[in-house]
């Protein structure tokens, strides 16, 4: 059984700590080159095809900015 996932990042709340980036097992997430209104580079799905919706990024996120969606394929 395979899963396909996607995350939605609340850009304005993200502080760019990159804890989600190192804890993503599929290298989906990276920090954006742009910054939010507070000046933090926010995390985003650099490789959306890799995402399995495991939710590890949301589990470790200190500011609860990540929402995870997942479908079976």
């Amino acid at each position: 059984m395979a899963f396909k996932g996607a995350i939605v990042v609340d850009i304005e709340r993200c502080k760019g700590c990159s804890v989600c980036v190192v804890n993503c097992p599929t290298q989906t997430i990276a920090l954006a080159k742009k910054v939010n209104s507070k000046g933090y580079p926010y995390s985003y799905m650099e490789n959306p095809d890799n995402c399995t919706g495991c939710g590890n990024c949301a589990t470790v996120c200190p500011d609860s900015v990540i929402t995870v969606y997942r479908v079976k394929i």
């Binding site: 996932g5 799905m45 919706g53 200190p62 500011d63 929402t67 969606y69």
Partner: peptide
């Protein structure tokens, strides 16, 4: 991605017990 991001596929979101205030803690 647009087909995945739908309410019925939601697996994790911010707890409703947390308020919407942005935490003052340092990043990470």
């Amino acid at each position: 991605v647009k087909d995945i991001i739908k309410p019925e596929n939601l697996v994790y979101s911010k707890s409703k017990v947390l308020t919407d205030t942005i935490m003052h803690y340092c990043p990470g």
